[in-house]
């Protein structure tokens, strides 16, 4: 079970997943509390054209910058669009999502290596993570966890009772921007490793799965992180074993996400077996 990770590229892939686990566990709790699954989905799609433009302009380094710019712009635009309930979260999010994703496809289809480029943008390249990429993810992790530590209390208050939080003097629009920016940064951190499509799984599944076994927020975050770690290790091992021992090509990032979803299903079944949800929240 250890042997595959003696290969440096496998060790780096595992380290990348571990860093993502550290940030995605806690951030997914807020995505869950605010019911922002769809917004996260939109962010991953709007980052896509940024990724393409960045890659065309400056290769892998440009890709990172392109993703960062696109994610930050989207976070601001989504916050403004949904501010004061002028547009429903769903409608405005869907408009931004589809427009940006189409733009990305148009841009990438102009390249000669269309298919392989598209695949790596959408599903990531977990096995080609470089030491520099690892360092960048680590920096982003520090930034995200710091933002989270500062804002956590206010963000929980806002998620539970927006009117009460506003009455207490919190500026709701700023808190929404704060969370959207954190989600955007997570997308940027994860996009090269797991791609724009699969990153949404890391933002939605961990907390949703953890909620089955606990109603305590810090425990939810920890369980979410543990689930990503487990799925990351298991998924990488599976894709290695499938490829080396059986000659079956299994995309590692997809294997990781499939395991994550499988653990969600297992916890769901367990919670059913344990009885009604009332016991869990009581």
């Amino acid at each position: 079970m250890i042997e595959p990770f003696q290969a440096p590229f496998m060790a780096r892939a595992l380290a990348e997943v571990a860093l993502l686990a550290l940030i995605c566990g806690p951030v997914s709790v807020f995505v869950f509390l605010r019911k922002l699954s769809f917004v996260s989905d939109a962010l991953t799609h709007t980052v896509f054209p940024g990724v393409v433009i960045g890659f065309v302009a400056g290769g892998l380094e440009g890709l990172f910058v392109g993703a960062l710019v696109a994610a930050l712009v989207t976070a601001v635009v989504l916050t403004l669009l949904t501010r004061g309930g002028r547009l429903s979260d769903d409608a405005s999010t869907a408009v931004v999502l589809t427009a940006m994703f189409s733009l990305g496809v148009v841009l990438v289809s102009r390249r000669s290596s269309y298919t392989s480029d598209l695949t790596s943008f959408l599903f990531g390249r977990l096995l080609t993570v470089t030491p520099q990429q690892l360092a960048e993810t680590a920096v982003l992790a520090v930034v995200i966890l710091t933002l989270l530590a500062i804002g956590a209390r206010a963000l929980v208050f806002r998620a539970f009772d927006p009117a009460g939080a506003a009455a207490a003097g919190y500026r709701i629009a700023w808190l929404d921007l704060w969370l959207n920016l954190m989600v955007a940064l997570v997308v940027v951190a994860a996009v090269r490793a797991v791609g724009t499509i699969l990153v949404v799984a890391l933002l939605v599944v961990p907390a949703a799965a953890a909620r089955m076994v606990t109603a305590r927020l810090p425990v939810m975050a920890a369980v979410g992180t543990a689930l990503i770690l487990f799925s990351g290790y298991g998924g990488l091992w599976l894709s290695w074993t499938a490829s080396i021992d059986y000659g079956v090509s299994l995309t590692s990032a997809s294997a990781v996400v499939l395991l994550l979803v499988a653990s969600y299903v297992v916890l769901l079944l367990l919670s059913f077996l344990k009885g009604s949800r009332r016991e869990l929240v009581g």
Partner: peptide, 24 residues
């Protein structure tokens, strides 16, 4: 107006009243 499924305890809800005093 509040979501009954939100995972907080009664004491945690009451603590929210202290958040502005506690600070960030």
């Amino acid at each position: 107006a509040l979501d009954a499924g939100f995972p907080v305890t009664a004491a945690q809800v009451v603590m929210m009243g202290r958040y502005r005093r506690i600070g960030w």
